[in-house]
Design a protein around this nucleic acid. Structure first.
Length: 289
RNA sequence: GCUGAGGUAGCCAAGGUGGUCACGGCGAAUGUUUGAAAAACAUUAGAUUCCGGUUCGACUCCGGACCUCAGCA
């Protein structure tokens, strides 16, 4: 049994390609690898596939968490691995589809993270410290390779040390025991697509979606933390920016996000880059038929 | 047309007795990624409107041209 991964930056057409692939293989199920589509109620803003678009293909790892709480890569990893097992048991092909490179890697490489859940109270307590100096004292080795000015990373490292009373362990990996075919969607002219898609989603009610989330109890802070559309729409609804600026900055931010996604993907030399379904089809044919 | 203010990177902009000038933000390029990853960070590139003068030396002072803004006509 082989596993397919379909990845690419936002707005590159992953959803469409994944459905075509699944229909072509006939016996396939899709596992989303998207750090925002895991949340319930976040649909238009995340570009989540609709029921009709699924064309009857089973989808996993969509709508599995409340947006009120932070969902993490480890939770994703556990659930995705379980889903893969089940799909293979049914003799179907698992297709992992998404743009969150970290999530994809965590699953297929099987990165074993230190089993220290985030402790937000502890994080708050130490956030005012001189984090880098503290880490240097606790674990000089990790301090040597870490981003010295990145509080997120520093705090996490310190958290691991304080909980385990040991230095930060090196990451071990337990890769999935199946061949993986990684297909990346290449598109060197995303900005117009991004803009078009953004305007379409607003027309479809993305602003109402954010209002709804707000009504169900999400704080402005949480919405801003969710990033991109949720951040900028929250700023707009709070009247911190006007409509025109919201559209302009948001489109720009999405473009930058797409570039960051590509920066992640570029490191992975196993990815086979394709421009369209025709090219993807050839690869799938070669591997499955 | 007159008066005043001003022209510093793609954009916004700070300064300084005339001395290798050149802060910062946005944007751009490249990259990092150990439980927030649509997050959080890092590195790099890039500028004195033009012409002349004073001076050992001008982004800074003087004159002119051009352009912008405000007020007046």
């Amino acid at each position: 049994m082989k596993i397919i991964v379909i990845l690419g930056p936002t707005a590159s057409g992953k959803t469409d390609l994944s459905i075509k692939t699944a229909l072509y293989l006939e016996k396939a199920e899709i596992i989303s690898a998207d750090s925002r589509q895991v949340y319930k109620g976040m649909n238009l803003g995340t570009g989540k596939i609709t029921k009709e678009e699924m064309k009857g293909i089973p989808h996993h790892l969509l709508d599995v968490a409340s947006p009120k709480r932070k969902f993490t890569v480890v939770q994703y990893q556990e659930r995705a691995r379980k889903a893969i097992k089940k799909i293979i048991k049914r003799d179907n092909v698992p297709i992992i589809v998404g743009g969150t490179g970290f999530y994809i890697d965590a699953v297929i490489k099987g990165m074993i993270f230190p089993s220290v859940p985030p402790d937000y109270r502890l994080r708050k307590e130490i956030e005012k410290e001189n984090l880098f100096e503290l880490l240097k004292k606790l674990d000089p080795k990790r301090a040597d390779t870490i981003d010295k000015k990145n509080p997120r990373r520093l705090i996490r490292a310190i958290e691991i040390i304080l909980k385990t009373k040991k230095p930060v362990p090196e990451i071990k990996e337990k890769p999935l025991p199946y061949p993986i075919i990684k297909i990346g969607i290449k598109n060197d002219n995303l900005p117009p697509l991004i803009k078009k898609r953004l305007l379409k989603r607003i027309e479809q009610g993305m602003i109402e979606e954010v209002k709804r989330l707000r009504k169900t109890g999400l704080s402005w802070k949480r919405l801003e933390e969710l990033g991109l559309e949720y951040r900028y729409l929250a700023l707009y609804l709070q009247e911190k920016i006007d409509y025109e600026e919201m559209i302009k900055s948001l489109a720009k931010e999405i473009e930058k996000f797409a570039k960051r996604q590509m920066t992640w993907f570029k490191r992975d030399k196993e990815i086979i880059w394709v421009k369209n379904w025709q090219e993807a089809k050839k690869i799938i044919k070669l591997n499955f038929f």
